[in-house]
Design a protein around this nucleic acid. Structure first.
Lengths: 210, 210
DNA sequence: TCTTGTATGTTAGCTGCGTTAACATATGTT
DNA sequence: AACATATGTTAACGCAGCTAACATACAAGA
């Protein structure tokens, strides 16, 4: 994902060939990028077709309908998000507070850099959320988040229910991502440092302030 | 807002009259309700016209384009949300912890009962967010939330920066609303009591656990 | 190699939506 | 009463999603 327009067009039509080669993957990638650049509302499947140099009917050889493509894009989103979370944790060491904080920051970074897909992953239509790959990869993603926080809590002998603490942290980080992405902080606290706020709040939610 | 279909159709066409009477308000109300019932994605202006018994061209006598109607709907959303917050606070008494918790619960309740509009208020297209009434009523709404939390903090002599605490609470409640609305908790903690979690987390974010 | 079936493209056409232009009818002001 | 203005309608356009009918490439067996 996250290819440039030129890269997409290279991949697009293997020069003069009637068949494309891998239109399915190319379309998913094109949609992924368009949605992140212009937002899901401004997205049209026809635009993706133009990017891939195929007719607007071509997608229907690979997908049932538009929603099925969006579901695939959404699933990729969860994949990418999980990858970022894993990366963040492993860079800091599993079971450390630094790892948890880094994971929270990765969550925020993902929302900021891939806002369009992030909205699909959460606000998306029921047709998307109920699709097979989305359910599975979504559960993987959330499961990993919760699991890592839980591991940390257990390792440090928290008296509270580790799962409950994990959900609270997730809630906080998700709220921060959403509000930041939508520029809602700007109006009220223009100079807010979101990452600092998260690093600050996480210990509080652990019940061990300071 | 929140009229039944029958009520809308009563308001719709003052039987046989060529002119409508108050198409502008009727359309806004119709859009508001459709969006909450079917989601902003499944919404079409044409549907709202059918509900109001007018042609699909009629709206353009009152609005520049579709986005202007959605902006109006979004603004109504902020109005309604502010009203609910004020109600919650005043029922419990300004400056009390109970008032703050009730306000948080009102936030969640609003997201659940008017999910479609809630998404517009946050995830909405730039064209909506940048409109005059949305900016103003949005600022009113957030301003009230922050203000009330700040009042509470000051009244109880919090050592921390009251504004910073307020933003943390808002973040948490917003995250809870979003995740709950999108059924994201279900998969991970099926039996979560969100309101209890909020009542639990708020004191933590105040830096005074227990 | 030829043939033939299947996968994967294309073009043409349908429907619905947003929008505008041209026209029609109320309303209210002189 | 006449006219300007506000607010409706119908007709038409372009674009998007989607389907059907047709075309082309590929792959596998005779």
């Amino acid at each position: 994902m996250a290819m440039t327009t030129e890269e997409l067009q290279e991949t697009a039509a293997p020069k003069g060939k009637y068949h494309h080669g891998d239109l399915r993957q190319t379309l998913i990638a094109a949609c992924y990028d368009i949605i992140n650049e212009r937002g899901a509302d401004a997205f049209s499947l026809a635009d993706a077709c133009r990017l891939a140099n195929v007719s607007t009917a071509a997608p229907y050889r690979h997908f049932k309908d538009r929603d099925e493509i969006l579901a695939e894009v959404t699933a990729r989103g969860f994949e990418a998000m999980t990858a970022r979370a894993v990366e963040a944790v492993e860079a800091q060491g599993e079971g450390t507070l630094e790892g948890i904080v880094a994971m929270g920051q990765a969550y925020v970074d993902f929302a900021l850099s891939e806002g369009g897909v992030f909205r699909l992953m959460f606000g998306g239509a029921p047709a998307l959320q109920d699709s097979e790959p989305v359910i599975e990869l979504g559960n993987n993603c959330f499961g990993y988040l919760i699991q890592q926080i839980t591991i940390y809590c257990m390792a440090h002998g928290m008296e509270q229910d580790a799962g409950a603490v994990a959900v609270k942290m997730w809630t906080f980080v998700h709220g921060a991502s959403a509000l930041l992405m939508d520029d809602k902080y700007e109006k009220v606290t223009p100079d807010l440092d979101v990452k600092a706020m998260i690093a600050d709040a996480i210990p509080m939610l652990l019940g061990k302030p300071g």
